[in-house]
Design a protein around this nucleic acid. Structure first.
Length: 418
DNA sequence: TCTGGGGTCCTAGGACCC
DNA sequence: TCTGGGGTCCTAGGACCC
């Protein structure tokens, strides 16, 4: 049996924990540069404010006081997520943290009554310890647990817990579930299904196996099996390392000269390399991406892929290669609106595959240097030690206007209770 | 004027090997 | 008219998730 615990309107709920007055209004949370909407409170969803909508379209209603609007505060959300996950960990040993606000559990085969009691206890404990409301869905596969969770959120009379175990209960829910509501079926596949006159999940699972494989591929087929209560996905083991690391941003103002672009690329490399070292990996390739605004046609994004002679996590070497790559793809006549760096093909930091021609990149001395910089930056501030290549004042300086305090991770932002 | 960031997995096609 | 069979590796692109 699987359970999915999902935080309700997570980012909005994090803000409301520390500023309860916000909950009286529809609340929206904005992306980097306050560009578009990435999260909404329940009230905002009820108003029909769409996910991903551009923020400027709602400025009027914010000014009129109808809607509250905040910049995103990922430091706060990440810390609150950790608190929720820690609280949940005490319940079941087989837990998979699936995203910042969701976790799957593998449960023992208990009666429906026992499962319900257990789930209610979990909900209450998370709410009491962290202030975050969660919904819990339980089913024989992850995909059905996900479906149950949606149900728990939609139907308030269920008290935040929904269990789909019996064949009849599952079937009934499949009958009223549209293809795009299924976990694993996105926009494109849903269109494909509709073109084949499949309008509900029930119709989908009744289809012939070979037809499904042809239409949706093996990935979609697995989803269908899961809907038929045949488990295909289990809870993955914790602390799996990332297979790629991306650092990218859109800029408030487009970048029109190469030295500014070099600076931001160096910053991306530095941040990505820090993440790389924190999971004890080294990268075998680095990719650079630069792109003008996607809203100006034709779209002319360019990228370049550089294989490393020796796998490394040494920031200066990665910056040097990134700059070389940038020179290859940079064209002066463009105004760049977005750029990014991707590190990939990792190997374990403790394994040394020597090259008999090229001298090793990562000497013990260089590793010590990186470790020391990481420690300083962790202890004092992310930007305490930076690389000169990043420049002193680059385009990444935040243009967030409405960011809440870091209530749980910064001493000076600690709330005072009177 | 203003439109996010970070991931995973699979597939098709090309190039190569014997 | 008709031209084998069995592989690997890589890349770009597409699909999905939050």
């Amino acid at each position: 049996m699987f359970a999915l615990v999902d935080c309700n309107n997570f980012y909005a709920s994090c803000e409301e924990v520390f500023n309860p007055s916000l909950s009286q209004f529809p609340l929206i949370i904005l992306s980097n540069n306050d560009g578009c909407i990435i999260a909404r409170s329940k009230k905002a969803k009820e108003l029909g404010i769409p996910m991903g909508g551009p923020a400027y379209m709602y400025k009027d209603r914010v000014e009129r006081g109808e809607i509250r609007m905040l910049s995103s505060n990922f430091t706060l959300y990440a810390d609150m997520s950790q608190r929720v996950m820690q609280t949940l960990e005490s319940y079941a040993p087989r837990m998979e943290i699936y995203s910042i606000d969701e976790a799957f559990f593998e449960l023992e085969e208990l009666s429906e009554e026992e499962l319900r009691n257990e789930a209610c206890r979990m909900r209450e404990k998370v709410k009491k310890w962290t202030g975050i409301p969660v919904s819990i869905g339980i089913g024989p596969t992850k995909t059905i647990a996900k479906m149950a969770n949606e149900l728990a959120k939609k139907r308030s009379e269920l008290g935040g817990v929904s269990i789909l175990i019996s064949k009849t209960a599952i079937r009934a829910q499949l009958e009223v579930t549209e293809p795009e509501e299924i976990w694993g079926i996105g926009h494109a596949l849903a269109e494909r299904l509709k073109a084949n006159r499949i309008y509900t999940a029930a119709q989908l699972i009744d289809c012939d196996d070979s037809f499904i494989k042809k239409l949706l591929g093996v990935v979609g087929y697995r989803t269908v099996l899961e809907l038929r209560a045949v488990p295909c996905f289990s809870c993955s083991q914790p602390i799996e390392k990332r297979k790629s690391i991306i650092c990218s941003r859109s800029f408030k103002k487009p970048i029109t000269n190469s030295s500014d672009l070099e600076n931001v690329i160096a910053t991306f490399v530095s941040r990505a390399a820090e993440k790389l070292r924190s999971q004890q990996s080294r990268a075998k390739f680095i990719s650079i991406v630069i792109a003008p605004s996607p809203f100006i046609q034709p779209y002319e994004g360019r990228s370049c892929h550089i294989d490393l002679p020796n796998p490394t996590a040494y920031t200066p070497e990665l910056i040097r290669l990134a700059k070389e790559g940038l020179k290859r793809i940079y064209r002066p006549q463009f105004a760049y609106k977005k750029a990014g760096v991707l590190l990939g093909d990792f190997c374990d930091g403790s394994v040394e595959q020597m090259d008999w021609i090229t001298p090793p990149t990562d000497t013990p001395k260089k590793r010590n240097l990186m470790r020391t910089i990481d420690r300083i930056n962790r202890r004092y501030d992310k930007t305490a030690v930076q690389f000169a290549a990043e420049g002193l004042d680059n385009h990444l300086r935040s243009s967030q206007t409405q960011v809440s305090p870091r209530f749980t991770t910064s001493w000076k932002d600690l709330l005072t209770v009177s």
